[in-house]
Design a protein around this nucleic acid. Sequence first.
DNA 1: AGCACGCCGACT
DNA 2: GTCGGCGTGCTC
Length: 722
Amino acid sequence: MGFAGIVVNNESQAMDRIFTYKIPEKMNISVGSRVKVPFGASNKRLDGFVVEMIPEAEVKGIKDISSVFPGTLFDSWTVEVVEEMRKRYLCTYLEGIRLFIPVGTLKGAGFKTEEKLYPNLVLSGKLNKEPYASIADLIGKNPGKFIRADISRMGFSPSSLNTLIRHGVIEVSSVRSSRHDIRDYENYEAPRLNQEQLIASDTIMKKPGTYLVHGITGSGKTEVFMDVIKRMLKEGKDSIVLVPEISLTPQMIERFKGRFGKDISIFHSRLSEGERFDEWHRVKNGEVKIAVGARSALFLPFRDLGLIVVDEEHESSYKSEMNPKYSAVEMAEFMMDRKGGRLVLASATPSINSYHRAVTGEIGLITLDKRATKGSLPEMTAVDMREELRAGNRSMFSRVLRGEIEKALDSKEQVILFLNRRGFSTFVSCRSCGHVFNCPNCSVSLTYHTSRDLSCHHCGYRQVLPETCPACSSRYIKQFGTGTEKVEEMVRKEFPGARVVRMDRDTAKNKSDYEDMYNSFKNREGDILIGTQMITKGLDFKNVTLVGIIAADLSLNLPDFRAGERTFQLITQVAGRAGRHDKPGKVIIQSYTPEDPSIVNAKEHDYKGFYRREISAREMMYNPPFSRIMSIVQSSVDEALLIKNIQTVGAELRKFLFGYDKIIMLGPSPCLISKIKQNHRWQVLLKGELDPDIARRIKDLVLEKSVRDVRTSIDLDPTSML
DNA sequence: AGCACGCCGACT
DNA sequence: GTCGGCGTGCTC
Ligand SMILES: [Zn+2]
Ligand SMILES: [Zn+2]
């Protein structure tokens, strides 16, 4: 009955192949079937996924499929996408397949069932007395309503119930129970779109393709894509909306649920594994037509996908840090291209890459520059912190910022202070001998947190800061650098009356902390909100009139060609939090380099100027989008082995690349963070015309020349070069 | 990755 | 003699 091409559930790179198995008589197999197969010399039973049907096979030593699970997990379209991912990001089949199947499938996740109680035989004989009669009566009147626990909660002994079950009076039956959100949401009416929004929606509907919607904060781009979703729904097409995880606030969920009701499924991180499983099935069964979620929602099993929206398209979280290290934007475009659908990329600060594609005409460009919801743009001021020092102000707040904070507090308006670094100080060292407190597992300095706690942000190592220097016993230990905790301390000291809320990974450990803090600040239970990156998106406060950026050059000084892009985006995004309908906001940008072009462009709300300058720098330096970057990181606990290995690999790579004058090789050299969790790390960076074919050959070469105890991690177009 | 096979040292 | 060390090679 033919053969099946199967990918087995084995993490190894070497197992990244399709194995041919024979389909036994009468076994119902198709692409997407999950099977058990005998594997290896010991015929160990492994999970496998059928990725192709093969009529004739001439491979030797073919074995039979052992068993098959009912139903299918994916179809041949999925296999096509997985193959594309494998090509682009050098991942394995298995890593690709895992994105498409419900989490926990291999661990045995399933539908939640409940053992419901039903009446069966009539009560008779010696059982016809208490407590049996009451129990039988209760279940007889409410068939299928109770489970065992309900009965014992009502004060009956579980053994009485068991007696009834044993005698067949009561029957137990498993019923699939639903875990999905059936709450009613308040209808969220669509507002009337303005002229600009209508044209945008029409443009997207006119023909399939990719569109970049560049809309300033408050221009109402969400309403544009909600309108497009509604129109797709009328055509019977499914839609996926990707949003950064942090933006999936209860407010956002209410908005979508209120607009699309039962047609929509929201995939947020608070769903349990079981709830995700159920939602995945609701999508597969066609019960929902729209999904909203973070990156991974892209791979939900819709039947007739016509639209993908990627909101805040510039966000680096759309690039996966784990294998497959895919870009959701790229994959969404591939999918819509193949399906003849539409991809909408939306952002107030588009990535250089997307904007470049738009201005060169490769994708459509739609600009929204009318403010639909907010008043005018915030007033931006840059402060030179060198001047402050010269004027004798050694505080972290410039005189302008301090004055504006006081003004805002006086008029009962709220303030946001942004610093993209958590902790109290970034490093601690002894002033007498220069000893620096470093992590024993990583090559980074420990961050000081309040409560005399030193911690490593890479491995979680913690220790208490000693009173005296471990090297020279001096008591003169000093902290350097600034984090959000120090900002909090200084705010409390300098503005003693103000109520302070601090939001960073340390205070908002989970989603509900985050929501509590968000709500408390929104309800004006705080005057000053201090936060990291976390506060730059999704937050919408009505009473914030001042935003202070404590150190705008933090993200600028990273050794990464995207530092300018990131700085511009951060400033613009956080500045978008300022202002209200009736009153424009003020933004104070503190920096030691206020003349830096990215800061100046952000200050002047000049996206186009920023783009023009940045794109020519990219071209000059042969950086993306004019080239591709491939980062090859190798790691091992054995430093000598690692160095020896990567030097061999490096030499082989140079030999291989000889003649490819469009590829530049840098390294091998130690990574900027040369040790993490006891693993030493070295890297090779390649830059140039790295098409999938060459990339694959490079990967094969690296793996072939590497020993077992050295781990290899390859990232194409990484978000950061560190 | 796992697992079997294989060829050498040091044990009852 | 044989128990077990981990180097090598293969997995439909
Ligand atoms: Zn010292
Ligand atoms: Zn560490």
